[in-house]
Design a protein around this nucleic acid. Structure first.
Lengths: 228, 228
DNA sequence: CTATGAACTATTGTCTACAATAGATAGTCG
DNA sequence: CGACTATCTATTGTAGACAATAGTTCATAG
């Protein structure tokens, strides 16, 4: 049932991916203007496909466009971070309600693999990769529901969270106070999922989300303080 | 705090709105191919802005685009309808959790007005307008949360639901078995919101959603049966 | 010295034209 | 007579150029 829809990507998709990567990697600072002609030179394409790519990123919430004033990388306020975190939490809850107990074993396998990857990263104290692995783990949990729109919405929200973290290196360095405790929480989450008890997973997810919320808010706050 | 950001809409926005309206009004059938040149003639614009508009609609889930094969109006399967309804429900739940008890009285006013409009439509037995008014009512409930991303996500999902209903007139004619009972349920919902009891609203919303689910599924099913 | 206005430049919005490809149709071979 | 292949056409993908506007800078007047 996995659809291997291999189809040559258009320049629009390639451009959108490239710019998305640049933004999430922090190569483009928040609030930075995206000059179309400059991007066309960098990417080696012409403006029409680039502009279509910008529309895609705009819908994804990574950039903001005002008529006649061009596009800029989205600037996230505390309110934005609040919105992202609450929305993410709500989507995860739906995913658990629909996906636990697990119906399709293959999907569980993906989550298990992601967790193993997280544990490897924690052992190597590689915080950067741990963030990525954590992202994959959560995505795989959401994928348990077999709900395409949910997955897309989640990916979009998670992406904005990465943008939020890309804006200050501080978060990337200090994000997880205790790596192993962090991974242990994820292990517990997966165990509960495997046990097939949605209520227990939701409860764990609640404290899980609470922690993320505090950590991110603190990091964002510290950035504001440190920039003065 | 209401931002009157008056800014002249670009052709992209105008085109997106126009095509969106055409799709939701049923003027473009589900699965119908959207030939770019034909649309440019209808709308009196050239292809670049049109293509950007199509990207917007693609991200909104109203059309599907495959590389080198153009765009077509999205075709919704039963799985799609399931996804739309569950997602909508999850978003409404988040809205209630954040928005009840009501913090900003002005927002409640909007919901009250929408409900009055619903009651007027029910009294006039105008099912078409009732659907619209119901949409506004639910949107205003979601707006209680003061959560921009939530509102946008909800609008997108709700829009797809309208697409789902646009594909068969049957749903529009017979959607609400009992108009007044339907409106009464909404009245109760708003009363609970005003009372400021999130748990009670969530409980009512659950049965509310359950009903919508059955009604829509039945209508979709009947369409499939009646088309043979 | 400051504030207001106009001209200018950088950038976006839009259009026309060309290149490339997927689907269709007809022709030919088995 | 059916199936496969080649050509052809309709449509999408991309490029480059022109038009319009917002922000900036400089000049001038108060």
């Amino acid at each position: 049932m996995t659809e291997h829809q291999l189809q040559s990507p258009s320049l629009v998709q390639l451009a959108a991916n490239a710019i998305r990567r640049m933004i999430l990697a922090g190569e483009l600072a928040e609030g930075e203007r995206l000059i179309e002609e400059r991007l066309t030179e960098q990417l080696g394409i012409s403006r029409p496909p680039l502009r279509e790519a910008l529309r895609v990123l705009e819908q994804e919430g990574l950039i903001v466009t005002r008529p006649r004033r061009g596009s800029m990388v989205a600037t996230l306020t505390d309110q934005d971070v609040f919105e992202i975190l609450t929305l993410r939490s709500a989507l995860e809850r739906l995913a658990v309600e629909l996906g636990v107990p697990v119906q399709v074993p293959e999907r569980l396998k993906v989550a298990q693999d992601a967790l193993l990857e997280m544990e490897r990263c924690a052992a190597a104290e590689d915080r950067g990769s741990l963030v990525q692995a954590g992202y994959k783990f959560h995505s795989s949990l959401v994928a348990l529901a077999g709900h395409r729109r949910l997955e897309e919405a989640y990916a979009s929200v998670q992406q904005q969270l990465l943008l939020c973290m890309a804006r200050n290196l501080y978060a990337r360095e200090h994000f997880y106070e205790d790596l192993h405790e962090h991974v242990a929480r994820h292990r517990k989450l997966l165990d509960l999922v495997e046990a097939g008890d949605p209520a227990a997973v939701l409860a764990e997810l609640a404290v899980h989300g609470e922690r993320s919320f505090n950590e991110i808010q603190n990091n964002v706050g510290s950035r504001e303080a440190s920039s003065s």
